[in-house]
Design a protein around this nucleic acid. Structure first.
Lengths: 292, 292
DNA sequence: ATGGTCGATAAGCACTGCTGATGGAGTGGG
DNA sequence: CCCACTCCATCAGCAGTGCTTATCGACCAT
């Protein structure tokens, strides 16, 4: 029998689940349909439970559960391979920095070397994975947190993480908004506000909810993408408020940025990198760290 | 060639690294020494770097790095298998609850059903693993945290985690200690104190360091074990102070428990369980949750 | 020298895991 | 109603894998 929980089997399983088809998965993976069928059968026998319904092909309850595991699992596997391989490989010249759009503050931009850096803007959740698998040499993640509290990141691999900046948080309002004149806003003032939920371009409402213990924030509009400009334009046009770090919120035409005063939250930026203490990546990492 | 990053290969690798011997590892795994040699060779070729020095057998830099990955990786694999298999398996009667010694407060003890529960006291770090792999149905982990902050647990698998209690933290002092008369203690008062570091029987000093941003606490004695009684006895005998949740610290003969007033930290207890919402485990979980 | 231990390597072989072919079940069209 | 088509399961066959046994070279202690 095929041996239990082989990564190969898991990969074909996720492919089958994703494509909802044995034959399609076989084509994608370069196997025969027969082989895929045998892979799934092996997995099901090994785990003692059917994972997929056939006709239509869809995950069973057990299969759903397995799918929740496979993602992190395969990711960690790739991360491990990449991490070890990185030690052996010749140090690349040219550095890739994965970042969220709002993490790129003036401090970071100032510290970048004059040439040889590739910036890659990614959704928040993909950055640890990118650093772990070596897709990027360094990562910048930001988010809402209580002052001096670290961010809560999914750990895909043993990564080093260090806070490099904390900035005030601002609420971005359209110029004519009734609250636009205030010197500061408490979250209670915004109980009835409508928000633009742009988790990968601004600060995610989900983090606001988590940090404050879960008031309901009504999202008028959801924006999926990484372009801050678009989101501020949406706010200016009255589609809803946006939460941004202060540097990113100031000076946007047609809007007013008002500091969020309560609860006490900060926009925190953290630097992620793999283990090595040598090489261009570590150099840049040191330059990004606050002086100490 | 043996295919890359097979769990089999990883397992033999960790065995070899742990035993520092190919032949020993072969014996333990039920292979031939030859097979083990081939496994390691396959891994090294796949990763493109030597992982072990021979004679003496010890991990290289790359090997050390790999070892950091293998633990969580293999754990997650077992967790996934166990989690999926659990759905299929007939629900066991008899419930296992993995817990730290200090997490067993009166609230928990009161909620336990009259019979059919196995308690298993484990080191803090092993509890998530035990729950994930199904060694235990439920887990109780405790630690120091800022009020209403969740604990920072290593995520081995998608586990549900809920806070079930927060209690004050006390410093346990021997009866004659100069500070024993105080109504409350600030951490600054204890700058020069000697501690008993008993990470698995009391509250770990490491967490105190992490929560306060890293003053140095001098450990006079380190205790590795899970018996609270022994640790309180050590403190009574003057070997150093101990940090305990208040319920566990009160009424210990020969000692005085003084609340820690600053920084504002609490002893937080969290309940861990796997996914299912049915079965005896979920019932107990519901009874342990605070009324809401 | 020499016996003993350790890991690397070669040769051989059983069996795994693939392919290709066939079968049964469901589906849509004429 | 039947036929053609698609999909997955199953079977047989075969190449290649990964194991074992056997041997070798290196190192160590006696």
């Amino acid at each position: 029998m095929l041996c239990g929980m082989d990564p190969h089997l898991l990969r074909t399983y996720v492919a089958v689940a994703r494509l909802a088809s044995f034959s399609e998965a076989a084509r994608e993976l370069g196997y025969t349909q027969s082989a895929v069928s045998q892979h799934i059968a092996a997995l099901e026998q090994d785990l003692g439970a059917p994972l997929l319904t056939r006709r239509p092909v869809a995950p069973t309850a057990a299969g759903e559960r397995l799918l929740e595991h496979t993602g992190p699992l395969l990711l960690r596997l790739d991360a491990a391979r990449a991490d070890v391989a990185r030690i052996a490989a010749a140090p690349r010249y040219g550095l890739t920095l994965a970042t969220t759009p709002t993490a790129l503050g003036p401090a970071v931009l100032g510290a970048l070397p004059p040439a040889g850096v590739t910036l890659r803007v990614l959704p928040r959740t993909e950055i640890p994975a990118a650093v772990a698998t070596g897709t990027a040499d360094l990562g910048l993640v930001d988010g809402l947190a209580a002052p001096s509290d670290p961010l809560r990141l999914t750990d895909v691999a043993p990564l080093t993480t260090r806070g490099i900046a904390e900035e005030p948080v601002s609420v971005l309002l359209p110029a004519g908004h009734p609250l636009a004149g205030r010197p500061g806003l408490r979250l209670g003032d915004l109980r009835d506000a409508r928000w633009v939920d742009a988790p990968d371009a601004a600060l995610p409402l989900a983090q606001l909810r988590a940090a404050t213990g879960g008031g309901a924030f009504r999202a008028a509009l959801r924006y999926e993408g990484t372009d801050v400009r678009t989101v501020t334009a949406l706010t200016a046009a009255g589609h809803g408020l946006t939460l941004l770090p202060r540097p990113a919120a100031t000076g946007v035409p047609g809007t007013v940025a008002v500091p969020l005063t309560a609860p006490r939250l900060v926009h925190r930026t953290e630097l992620l990198h793999g283990g090595g203490t040598g090489g261009a990546a570590a150099d840049l990492a040191r330059r990004l760290l606050p002086a100490d």
